[in-house]
């Protein structure tokens, strides 16, 4: 009995070590916040294009170049960090009319599948949560590998269009378009 009991934790520890070793075989990736921009633009009739970005975000990225479909990404954005270069308009966007940041402080994206198109392109599908509503969206991603002797960096530029009506953001429609154009650019570096 004693042997049996001590055997189980030992095998668990072995399994954990094995898992850790396996995880370390792939480098872990760190997003460089200074090279990361979560940008958007939206058009309206009789109004100039409104373009801005979310300044506060947090993202994790896991890249597997050998098996791209195993790569995954998740991003979280603080809704109140919206910046369209006008404090007054920022406040209006934060109000319940649009982002309703008091009730929904964060927006998030979690990938569900990554499909490699070619060496520089991938299509990432995932779930976007905005205003508490989660809907699948697809993003086209441009990948730029920058290999250096000491570390390797990868640049990503993800673009996509979402329909804000899907998330219950109806204000101003149809004068204000239903299409929100997203561009997320980021750079991640591998830590060997």
């Amino acid at each position: 009995m004693r042997k049996g009991k001590s055997f189980r934790p030992a095998s668990l520890a072995l399994a954990l070590i094995a898992a850790t070793v396996a995880a370390q075989a792939r480098p872990s990736w760190k997003i460089d916040p200074s090279q990361t921009h979560v940008r958007f633009w939206i058009d309206a009739i009789g109004w100039p294009r409104t373009a801005g970005e979310f300044k506060s975000f947090d993202g994790r990225i896991d890249i597997d170049f050998d098996r791209p479909s195993r790569s995954r990404v998740d991003f979280e954005v603080a809704a109140k960090s919206v910046d369209v270069n006008s404090a007054t308009l920022d406040d209006y966007l934060r109000s319940e009319v649009f982002l309703n940041v008091a009730k929904f402080p964060s927006m998030g994206f979690v990938s569900t599948s990554v499909e490699k198109r070619d060496e520089q392109h991938a299509r990432v599908t995932g779930d976007l949560t905005m205003l508490g509503v989660t809907r699948p969206i697809s993003l086209d991603v441009e990948v730029a590998r920058k290999l250096a002797a000491t570390n390797q960096r990868v640049g990503f530029k993800a673009t996509g269009v979402i329909n804000r009506l899907d998330f219950g953001m109806n204000s101003g429609y149809p004068l204000i378009s239903d299409a929100i154009h997203l561009t997320v650019s980021t750079e991640a570096s591998a830590e060997p």
């Binding site: 109004w47 100039p48 369209v84 270069n85 006008s86 007054t88 308009l89």
Partner: peptide, 12 residues
Amino acid sequence: DLGAGAKFEAYQ
């Protein structure tokens, strides 16, 4: 010919 932010502020 104003940007969206400046135009919004002018309206307010």
